[in-house]
């Protein structure tokens, strides 16, 4: 029997650019052309000023650890507990949920505000997830 797989996102017309970006090794955010607000999750208008003139840009992929839990039970399909579910604050401002890789999943190793950088994990030919690892240097 196949191992249960982690939940896989299904892009919509409004989010396709984000998922195309992760496949291309880029973390893509949106910026409002009218008020310069940077926002996430994707949508074709600015949630701050309602302008429909918005641009997609490649984010730095850098951020810091805003908060997390280390989940023990129940574990989601495709995950081996304990594993951290993190919220990363990107240098550009928005926050996003992710996982922290290349790091022990312990309170001692996972320090709030530690610097992180994006890493891409390919799930299949269509979906690559943005994960984060402790920043080097």
């Amino acid at each position: 029997m196949a191992e249960p797989a982690r939940a896989k996102p299904k892009p919509t017309p409004e989010t396709q650019h984000f998922w195309d970006g992760t496949q291309a090794g880029e973390l893509r955010l949106q910026r409002c052309d009218a008020c310069a607000n940077v926002y996430f999750p994707p949508r074709p208008f600015c949630p701050s000023c309602a302008s429909r003139k918005v641009s997609v840009f490649k984010a730095s992929g850098k951020g810091k650890l805003y908060s997390y839990v280390i989940n023990h039970r129940p574990a989601a399909p495709g995950f081996t507990p304990p594993y951290a579910i993190a919220v990363v604050e990107l240098d550009e401002g928005p926050r996003m949920m992710s996982n922290i890789i290349d790091c022990p999943q312990t309170p001692e190793a996972l320090e709030l505000d530690m610097k992180l950088e994006v890493a891409f994990e390919k799930l299949d030919d269509k979906i690559t997830l943005p994960l984060f690892r402790p920043a080097k240097g």
């Binding site: 982690r6 939940a7 896989k8 996102p9 299904k10 892009p11 919509t12 989010t15 998922w19 999750p41 989940n71 574990a75 989601a76 495709g78 995950f79 594993y83 579910i85 993190a86 996003m96 949920m97 992710s98 996982n99 799930l123 997830l129």
Partner: peptide, 8 residues
């Protein structure tokens, strides 16, 4: 489903 569920 896209931006939280995949992360466990």
């Amino acid at each position: 489903g896209q931006f939280e569920a995949p992360f466990g």
